[in-house]
């Protein structure tokens, strides 16, 4: 499997403003804040349940996302990667985690945005490589079991959605 998409759900506290992600993401480009080629920032905050504010890159997009009307940090792997499925999963999860950690430290969001990693949505952004059927779900859940410790998994969404697993941390 390739092209993983990871959404880490976030919590907004008082004073949080989505459009503040615009200067933050522009700064990430200016300062080479992430170890990959970042291209531009797209503002979709006008779209209900949309991509929010997107940081478009060559290999990946990052976004402070509002899909399904839930705020979260969304990481989307665009280009193909070498290695095993587990390697690619680890890489996607690590990229999303790093972006979350960075985001909450930005002055615009400090104390106003948090990610507790209790719930993470993992999808495969390619319907041909990973059709949304029980067999693919099982394969992905098994792979995830090896890389995400302490979570339970659930096949999420409707049949037309990307193959999606909701990982919930077991307390």
């Amino acid at each position: 499997m390739q092209h993983f998409r990871v959404k880490v759900f976030g919590r907004a506290a008082e004073g949080f403003e989505l459009h503040q992600a615009i200067p933050v993401f522009h700064r990430w480009i200016q300062t080479n804040a992430l170890p990959e080629l970042l291209i531009d920032v797209a503002d979709y905050s006008h779209v209900p349940g949309g991509p929010g504010v997107l940081l478009a890159g060559h290999d990946s997009h990052y976004g402070l996302d509002l899909r399904k009307n839930r705020l979260g940090l969304l990481y989307i792997r665009r280009t193909a990667q070498d290695g095993s499925t587990a390697d690619r999963l680890r890489s996607a999860l690590a990229a999303a985690r790093a972006a979350c950690e960075k985001l909450v430290q930005e002055p615009e969001f400090a104390g106003k945005l948090s990610f507790d990693f209790d719930e993470i949505e993992i999808s495969v952004n390619d319907r041909l490589l990973a059709p949304n059927i029980p067999e693919s779900y099982q394969e992905l859940a098994d792979e995830l079991g090896a890389v995400l410790d302490g979570y339970t998994f659930r096949h999420d969404g409707e049949p037309r959605d990307l193959l999606t697993v909701l990982a919930v941390r077991a307390h």
């Binding site: 779209v47 949309g50 991509p51 952004n125 990307l162």
Partner: peptide, 15 residues
């Protein structure tokens, strides 16, 4: 319309 949704999601930025 559904195919447009798939393409926006898989190749573009979801829009």
């Amino acid at each position: 319309i559904e195919v447009m949704a798939e393409l926006a999601e898989e190749y573009s930025d979801g829009i």
